[in-house]
Amino acid sequence: MPKGQSKTDNIIQPLLTIMEKLRDPETGCPWDKQQNFKTIVPFTLEEAYEVADAIEQADFDSLPDELGDLLFQVVFYCQLAKEQGMFDFSTVVEKICDKLTRRHPHVFPTDSALVSAEKVKQSWDAIKQSEREQKQQFSLLADIPVTLPAMNRAIKIQKRVAKVGFDWPDLAPVVAKVHEEIDEVMEEAKHLNTEPEKYHERVVDEMGDLLFAVANMARHLGVEPEQALRQANQKFERRFRGVEVCAEQSGKSIDEHSLEELDAYWEKVKQQEKAK
Rank of each mutant, 00 (worst) to 15 (best):
D65V: 12
D69C: 06
L70C: 01
L71C: 03
L71E: 01
F72S: 09
Q73Y: 06
Q73F: 04
V74R: 05
V74C: 03
V75N: 02
F76A: 13
F76M: 08
Y77L: 14
Q79F: 02
L80P: 05
K82V: 00
K82S: 14
K82Y: 06
E83Q: 15
Q84P: 09
G85R: 14
D88L: 05
F89V: 00
F89L: 04
S90Y: 11
S90D: 10
T91R: 07
V92F: 01
V93I: 09
E94P: 08
E94T: 05
I96M: 10
I96P: 01
C97N: 13
D98N: 01
K99Q: 02
T101S: 05
T101Q: 04
T101D: 05
R102H: 08
R102Q: 06
R103I: 09
P105A: 08
P105D: 03
S112E: 09
A113D: 15
L114G: 00
V115P: 00
S116H: 06
A117P: 00
E118Y: 03
E118R: 03
K119Q: 11
K119E: 14
V120S: 00
Q122T: 10
Q122H: 01
S123H: 02
W124I: 05
A126E: 12
A126M: 14
K128A: 14
Q129V: 03
S130G: 15
E131S: 08
E131P: 03
R132F: 10
E133K: 12
Q134C: 07
K135C: 12
Q136F: 13
Q137C: 08
F138H: 15
L141K: 08
A142T: 09
